[in-house]
Nucleic acid binder design. Structure first.
Lengths: 102, 102
DNA sequence: TGGCAATATGTCCGTTTAGACATATGCTCT
DNA sequence: AGAGCATATGTCTAAACGGACATATTGCCA
């Protein structure tokens, strides 16, 4: 993982480090988180592309604006399941999903 | 969705119907579930390919045999998150994941 | 047939995540 | 500046999901 990517992860609060304790991510964890960030970034991009507000998307998926914001922010307390449901609701196809992930 | 696919979903307990109540899946829900089933099938295939038992895989991902069985059975009470973590632990690459999903 | 390893099914209970709400911050107009 | 909309952040409680355990069930081979 290059330092740019690492920074991107750290900036989102995924890697919490202080002088006493440093959480080292295993390779699988890092890959999982990267995947999740790809999904959240794509969600935001797709929503903006369709000119939908967070409030509107929230209604579409039966959720709330705050949760949508957290999804797009890559908050650790958001599951891939929820991200996928949102993307599917926006009409993203399997092929597009595949591209996002790969 | 063709009837074959529908049968496959129903057989897993996703569609619970009786004479009074019939749960109709929305298009998004169906697509989400199909995605999940693809992942669980791939998980089982990959595990078998690597000649790993459910007990062994459970240890690898810090879980239990029963949960691995549920993952592979496409149990609704298993998240995509968990399936992804298992697949990643087995060394499945992003490209392979993309193929599974698409 | 019985024994054994692998897998399936069902339940329990602690933890995590969900939506909801309140509130803060930011952005764009006029 | 301030009104108005969009987004961000933080917290609450109920619901969903997690691992663990117990207990079937299956399949294989001696």
């Amino acid at each position: 993982m290059d330092s740019k990517k690492k920074k991107r992860l750290e900036a989102r609060g995924w890697v919490v480090g202080d002088t006493r304790e440093f959480l080292r991510l295993t390779a699988e964890e890092a890959r999982y988180i990267e995947l999740k960030l790809s999904l959240s970034e794509s969600l935001k991009a797709e929503r903006l592309k369709q000119q939908v507000t967070q409030v509107e998307l929230a209604k579409m998926i039966g959720s709330s604006q705050s949760r949508v914001a957290k999804m797009e922010a890559g908050d650790p307390a958001v599951t891939v399941d929820l991200l996928l449901k949102a993307l599917l609701t926006l009409g993203v196809t399997k092929k597009q999903l595949a591209k996002i992930i790969a």
